[in-house]
Nucleic acid binder design. Structure first.
Lengths: 145, 145
DNA sequence: TAAAAGAGTCAATCTAAATGAATCTTTTGG
DNA sequence: CCAAAAGATTCATTTAGATTGACTCTTTTA
């Protein structure tokens, strides 16, 4: 059971942006910091923008910033939107060829468990997964004029 | 996010065995019923036996049967023991090279979500995922002498 | 004691994720 | 206005892990 690195990177990007809320951050910078290839990271960021978590400003002097304050970004939401395939097992698909599909209750049971998984993640905001020092920084920034 | 087919098959095997509690079932039979290669299925069954869910009786006239009544087999337990790698993201590993690992709270948050996932599955017994007709059969069998 | 049944090993295959090169498009500072 | 900075898109390659199946044991009992 895994979450794709794509989603993993997305969370890292958001955490990084949250820790640098006061300025624009370029993909270049993030890719260097995390040692991830620029073009790969680009795709991750793209998806974050398309899903409304991040704002991307093009052109000279452009960069990235959170589209909403980190208190309003639920971790569960991010994972849900970044993971493209949430079909835990074959019988989640219409095309399932398992001969039990029609009668067995597994699909519902696993579906409920998946919901519990996301419900747990939904309770946590991006601002809460930052390290103590980063959170302190956030706090200071909020109090600044 | 996926569960391996290995685990998927394991659940199918258990369901099949639960629906045929009154007799021994051979791997051969299951592999034909589910159209899975015999040697592949063998590995799945092996793991089920090693984990104490199934009893395998060798030799002529042998076969498989549940090691415990299906009411005492939790779906969560099966998934937990069949899935070999439950490290959701890189930072679950000791060797994580993510520079956030030390400070960020993601690991704990995702870990808690995973627990919620399994807690949900633990509430369900194998006997509860059988189809209505199969469950009815179980019921009848229990009442028989 | 031979046949049935499970156990184990090994290598091939297949798939989806991950990667990265190359080429767009947009924007703005000078 | 236009060159440079920055994000957007496309495409092909690589890689890791899951899946598969052939082949060879070992155990057991009719």
């Amino acid at each position: 059971m895994h979450i794709t690195q794509h989603t993993d990177y997305a969370l890292r990007v958001l955490i990084y942006l949250a820790s640098n809320e006061q300025r624009l951050v370029t993909i270049q910078e993030i890719s260097e910091r995390f040692e991830i290839s620029r073009s790969h990271l680009m795709k991750v960021v793209n998806q974050l923008i398309r899903n409304g978590f991040v704002e991307g400003l093009r052109g000279k002097g452009g960069g990235l910033r959170l589209a909403r304050p980190p208190q309003q970004i639920a971790v569960g939401d991010v994972v849900r939107r970044m993971e493209t395939d949430l079909a835990l097992v074959e019988c989640f698909h219409e095309t399932s060829r398992c001969l039990l599909t029609s009668t067995c209750q597994l699909k519902g049971v696993l579906g409920a468990a998946l919901e519990a998984f996301f419900a747990s993640l939904d309770k946590v905001a991006l601002s809460e997964v930052l390290g103590p020092s980063q959170r302190a920084l956030l706090h200071v920034l909020k109090r600044a004029p």
